[in-house]
Design a protein around this nucleic acid. Sequence first.
DNA 1: GAATGTGAACTCCTTCACAGCA
DNA 2: TGCTGTGAAGGAGTTCACATTC
Lengths: 223, 223
Amino acid sequence: MAGVTPPRRDVPAATVARLPVYLRALHDAATRGVATVSSEALAAASGVRPTQLRKDLSHLGSHGVRGVGYDVGGLTAELTAALGLTRTWPVAIVGMGNLGRALAAYSGFATEGFDVVALLDADPLLVGARVQGIAIAVMTELPRLVTELRVAIGVIATPPQAAQQVADALVAAGVEAVLNFAPTAITVPSHVSLRSVDLATELNVLAFLRLHGEPGTGVGRAG
Amino acid sequence: MAGVTPPRRDVPAATVARLPVYLRALHDAATRGVATVSSEALAAASGVRPTQLRKDLSHLGSHGVRGVGYDVGGLTAELTAALGLTRTWPVAIVGMGNLGRALAAYSGFATEGFDVVALLDADPLLVGARVQGIAIAVMTELPRLVTELRVAIGVIATPPQAAQQVADALVAAGVEAVLNFAPTAITVPSHVSLRSVDLATELNVLAFLRLHGEPGTGVGRAG
DNA sequence: GAATGTGAACTCCTTCACAGCA
DNA sequence: TGCTGTGAAGGAGTTCACATTC
């Protein structure tokens, strides 16, 4: 990766959330055989405005070519490095209900630097069953699995009642990043990164928009 | 619902995204038999600061009691009305892969004002199979189903390549709100509401935070 | 005394306008 | 000329400080 500008420290959170979207659009462009893209084209494919895109990339110290655009391969390498996708992040998913299984099979989790290496559930009836080629383990195995497989990110896909104790178990086992899909607020120590995704909330927001006649069109955020 | 203050028009989007979280915390409180909550207690249960909560509620013209707090039942009714959950919103899910099935079964979608009434898929092999008691229909049935079942919200859980054409079909059928889970940017006419949720993006953000040593702890947003 | 409601300050993000460069 | 990069302006959201009410 020689020649790739090291990412800066002060990238705004809102920008970070958009970088994966740009990266996907770049992959699409590369697949179509495009060698150079303008901020206008890349922004359109990403659902943002060109100025937004350029400002975002400027936080990475990115260098396009004025009058020409961005080199698809070069920018891909820069974003990949900035997002830390030049290494692989082992992921454990806790909770093998419908959502957990879907996440285990979700292609977006399997591509580009993330590797689902462990699946766990509290239900003894599920333990041992294989999902995506991985045997579901009991929760008591969590510390061992995290250590041996060097799990960096824990995903919570349990019912809300269990979410906090699963988060505690993940943190105790040494996981330093938690992604919570359970519809409840959880807390973790300050040295642990936490993101929560609430699927139902999005429906609520849409209902609100419809109710008040505000379309509010635009590409929603994921974060 | 007499006595419930009608919701105001100018509620900030960020506030709207938090209202469902407050509503859930209120339900928990009611379940525990609590009749009155302070902004401090409700904020703690929701993962936000008390001032944030009070400012959010002030946008609804809400009235707590100074020196006392909020009436759990009364505030629940206000939030329910503000979010448009006094009516039922029929939902159609397109794409019956792992994610679509998980969403169809997701309890958060079934509670409180949302009703999954139609499931569709382009794969003839899936058509007719039942998920959650609903038979999967072919895409050509979409216009009829939307009309007959008065579908208000369409959920896209297809591969990214199909997402835009599914969105177009939903819009053509008369759906005025779209929730996109496919990892790609899609566009809809300006009169249609659109939200996109990108599951993989959240993993990327966590990887970035870890990579740069910024825990960034806090309860993440769903929107 | 206790807790809400809110104007004002502050921080963060987006958009604009245009300078800079191939 | 064409398109990027960026300082400055503008807008949105959060936090603070405190007046207000029970």
